[in-house]
Design a protein around this nucleic acid. Structure first.
Lengths: 93, 93
DNA sequence: AACCTATTTAGATTTTCATCTAAATAGGTT
DNA sequence: AACCTATTTAGATGAAAATCTAAATAGGTT
């Protein structure tokens, strides 16, 4: 797992919106593409970046590929960020 | 505050390392630059992106500018991410 | 005032990223 | 087998980002 990849994946508005769509349950690439005014190839590109960062996984069923959020990677990002909040540190700042 | 900006700011390894350095307390731009094999102008550029995303703030003292992590923005990122973990949702998935 | 040190700005270059169209692949369905 | 629909790959283009050098600004210090 690489924070490099996960933060970069999160840094694009289309990819964040894809994650929003996936919050409502698993959805196919076509259905996702239908929500945007972008070529399917472009959505495929964004999905591959999300996949490559492990933020989503894919599951084939019949002629479709369903995508799903990988919550554990999101949790790792949250844990990474928590080091900067000073929450569990004992600094005397 | 914009997740666009904060995630993009977090997505660069140099900027994440700058935040790491700032965990140990406020530090000047020069001291930060000393940790990298990059031109000072480049570090200044990264600092301005971090500043623009509100992930850090600056405080002038004498001839120096000290930088400091803005923990509240980090917390907002964590909160944003939490929507994807299904933690406090009641989905029957 | 002159100087020094810290930091930023300007402008150029290189690299990376987002996007498109067109073509390829891949799997069901008839 | 032929066809259809879903998705990806290839290759091109334009836009955005990272980096550098050199110059400018800006504040202390002497």
């Amino acid at each position: 797992m690489s924070f490099q990849k996960s933060f970069k994946a999160m840094s694009h508005p289309v990819r964040r919106q894809i994650l929003d769509i996936l919050k409502n349950g698993d959805v196919t690439a076509s259905d996702i593409a239908a929500e945007f005014d972008l070529a399917h190839a472009t959505i495929s590109h964004h999905l591959s970046i999300l996949k490559n960062s492990d933020l989503i996984s894919e599951h084939k069923y019949k002629n479709y590929i369903y995508y799903r959020i990988n919550t554990s990677v999101v949790e790792e990002m949250m844990f990474y960020l928590s080091q900067f909040t000073g929450g569990s540190n004992n600094e005397e700042n």
